[in-house]
Amino acid sequence: MPFVRKLAGLVGFLLLWEAAGRLGLVDARVLPPPSEVLVRFGLLFTDRGFVAGAVSTVLSWAIALLCATVLGVGVGLLLGSVPALRLITMPVIEFLRPLPSVALIPLAIALLGTQAQTKIVLGVFAATWPILLNTSYALGEVDPRLLETVRCFRVSRWRRLVGVTLPSIGPFVLTGVRISASIALIAIVGTEFLAGGSIGLGQYAFVQGTSGGRMDVVLAATVFAGLFGCLVNAGFLAVQRRWVSWGSVASSSGEVAA
């Protein structure tokens, strides 16, 4: 029954959109109906420019997320366990974190050019914060009674880390990675969007949209990015349920500790 409703909602949304275009309520050149976008979506995969762009975006995203995870967890663990270090870095982090990565785009382009390394660096910059903060925050949340219990059994330091601390912070870290996954995608696509001459989904949409006025292509590319995002998010949720099911799987949006 819920599934029927969900499907009905989606179909209703598409029908409304289609009708709005067909009846001339909205300009079909501005917002092409879903039937056209779907056909265009299928044709995208025969477009070399799109395929190259999509591959570049997805690869950069994966690399950026991997780097951000290693960096975020590493530094987060360090800051979470050495209070003095946290004391001197937190004020700086507080200023750096709200800085949107896209503000650094002009600088990064001037410095690194319009190649893939630019968007990867900016993706890493944007995606590291949620992971880093979730990790260091989670360290403070490990139940002290649990640690004391384990110490009473004279478990070695190393096994305390691997057997107690890491599993305890696992759910938080994974939530951070999941948030970062979508932030990294926004940062990377945004960078491509602003970096003329680069290869990627963002640049593809920019060129098709602003010089060609091809909204059907722009929307089809957006649909691709959306589906990719959905898949990644669903994948993370599945992993979270499968392997760290002991931690409360944070809200569907996961912005709990963000």
């Binding site: 819920p2 409703r5 969900k6 499907l7 009905a8 909602g9 989606l10 209703g12 949304f13 050149r29 501005v30 917002l31 979508s182 995608l185 926004i186 696509v189 945004g190 969007f193 989904l201 963002g202 949409a205 920019f206 098709q208 949209g209 602003t210 006025g213 909204m215 722009v218 929307l219 590319a221 957006t222 649909v223 990015a225 959306g226 589906l227 990719f228 995002g229 959905c230 998010n233």
Partner: peptide
């Protein structure tokens, strides 16, 4: 019930990277 009707649409809309939609909004 309301949440069910909107679930798929919203799940999808929220994953669209907003920068990609800038050309659409610019045209409108």
């Amino acid at each position: 019930a309301l949440a069910d009707y909107f679930e798929f649409v919203f799940t999808f809309l929220r994953t669209l990277p907003p920068p990609l939609l800038v050309p659409v909004f610019m045209l409108v």
